[in-house]
């Protein structure tokens, strides 16, 4: 087993680059499997891999959660019960700003992680702060949208369609809000504790979480807002 001291995931990527035709099949190939990645017969993975892997699995379950709310929206989309239709409530300009904010925040989030890898506390913090700020913009805009709709009497209590609309968009908003709380905690932890291994692991997880929310939002933006505005 060649151990180069790199994180196993980086090591794995290096191997793949050098041997592009055996993607992901280390264990059966002539080469030895990557130690510390938990592959094949190499024994348990390292903590960093385990944490990231477990969090991926959590994210998959979260995606399933969202897909139920997507499914509910698909089922109830036409159930307006005499109330407004979806095309009457979507406000594309605002959602465009929201989307931009969220996508940018994903970018800055990634930058913060690059800074983490370079072990720069200052830049990690700065980019995390920007990420949090953009997230806040997103949540506030969404809140504004909900409040304005409510002021027009458009609430989840009106129809099945509105229920599923507020449910899906609200669930995502709730995730972003909780992500913000987590982000604030991470800011404090990085400040006080620095880049201890467990803090870095949490930063990895936070990154994954934040990007996953972005992907879900792309789905919401397309299916709820863009397709909604067409009808």
């Amino acid at each position: 087993m060649t151990y180069t001291g790199l994180p196993a995931s980086v090591e794995a990527i290096r191997r793949v680059r050098e041997d592009p035709h055996r993607l992901g099949h280390r264990a059966h190939g002539p080469e030895e499997p990557v130690a510390g990645a938990g592959h094949g017969e190499t024994g348990p993975a390292r903590k960093r891999i385990i944490v990231g892997y477990g969090f991926w699995i959590y994210l998959l379950s979260d995606i399933v959660l969202f897909s139920c709310f997507f499914a509910a929206f698909a089922v109830l989309r036409g159930a307006t019960a005499g109330g407004p239709t979806i095309s009457q409530i979507v406000d594309i300009p605002r959602v465009a700003i929201e989307t931009t904010a969220l996508l940018l925040s994903s970018y800055t989030c990634m930058l913060s992680f690059a800074a983490t890898n370079a072990r720069s506390r200052l830049w990690t913090q700065i980019f995390l702060l920007i990420t949090g700020f953009l997230g806040l913009v997103f949540v506030l805009l969404e809140l504004q949208e909900f409040i304005e709709l409510a002021a027009r009497g458009i609430t989840p209590q009106v129809s099945g369609m509105l229920t599923s609309f507020f449910g899906l968009v609200g669930l995502h908003g709730l995730h972003v809000t909780l992500g913000g709380l987590w982000l604030a905690t991470m800011l404090a932890q990085v400040q006080v504790k620095g880049f201890r291994p467990e803090i870095v692991h949490r930063l990895i997880c936070f990154n994954l979480f934040w990007h996953a929310l972005d992907i879900v939002w792309i789905g919401i933006f397309t299916i709820v807002y863009l397709l909604g505005s067409l009808t």
């Binding site: 509910a72 109830l76 307006t80 019960a81 209590q157 129809s159 099945g160 369609m161 229920t163 507020f166």
Partner: peptide
């Protein structure tokens, strides 16, 4: 709300 009600489109 009206996910599963038998009124208002649930």
């Amino acid at each position: 709300w009206h996910y599963f009600t038998n009124t208002a489109g649930g």
